[in-house]
Amino acid sequence: MPNIETLLLAALVATSGIARAHGDAEPAKKPAVAKKEQKDWGIAGDAKAARRTVEVTMLDSMRFSPERLDVKQGETVRFVVRNDGQVMHEFVIGTRAENDAHAALMMKFPGMEHDEPYMAHVGPGQTGEIVWTFNRRGEFDFACLIAGHYQAGMVGRIVVAAARQTKE
């Protein structure tokens, strides 16, 4: 019999309006983010502010290409993520701790999915897009948190370097 925490979490997910099951269908294009929430790894960006587009490929070998990205603090990047595989993959930006916690939850509830501006769920042969502003320095991860994918090593690294100071 499930414990009370499991039942409460399942009820929360079912009634929150932000969860939906992973599937093979390509999700609809994301609308503009109505309310931006500051995260440790940045904030949702405006497409008009993106000066660089980075293409990331997701593979059924449980790898991303490229596996490391370098950006400057303050930079807004448009990520175009392409699923070259035969199964659903996702691209989720976050801290290692945040992704570890979410991945553990996905193992318990494999049908769970959140629709956040730092996540793209991409069906086989499809593409998705995220626009993100890296307004904090540090090292962050991107990962596929679908049950088993993260555990198989489907993780990449984003290094956000301080913007160069100019002397006046």
Rank of each mutant, 00 (worst) to 15 (best):
A10L: 10
P27R: 05
D70F: 08
V77H: 00
L59V: 02
A50G: 10
A10Y: 06
R51W: 12
H89R: 07
K36A: 01
M106C: 09
R20Q: 10
L69F: 04
K72T: 12
V13D: 12
E55V: 09
E98W: 02
A14T: 15
E90M: 10
E98F: 05
D100L: 12
Q38L: 02
F79Q: 00
R52E: 06
M88Y: 06
R52L: 01
V80H: 14
I93S: 01
A44H: 00
V13Y: 14
D46C: 07
I93F: 04
A11F: 13
Q86H: 09
T76I: 04
D100F: 13
A49G: 07
A32P: 11
A44K: 00
A97R: 14
N83S: 07
V33D: 13
A103W: 05
A50Y: 08
A14E: 15
T76S: 02
A50N: 09
K72D: 14
E98S: 09
K35Y: 00
T53S: 02
A49M: 08
P66W: 03
M106W: 06
A19R: 11
A32V: 01
A34I: 12
K35T: 00
N99V: 07
R68V: 14
K39E: 07
M58F: 05
A28E: 15
G45C: 04
A50V: 09
P66D: 05
P31F: 07
G42C: 08
L12Q: 10
F64Y: 06
A14W: 15
S65E: 15
M107S: 14
A101V: 04
N99L: 11
E75I: 05
M88K: 05
G74V: 02
D84K: 15
M88F: 08
E75A: 07
G17W: 11
V71W: 02
A28V: 14
F91I: 00
P31N: 06
E55K: 09
N83C: 06
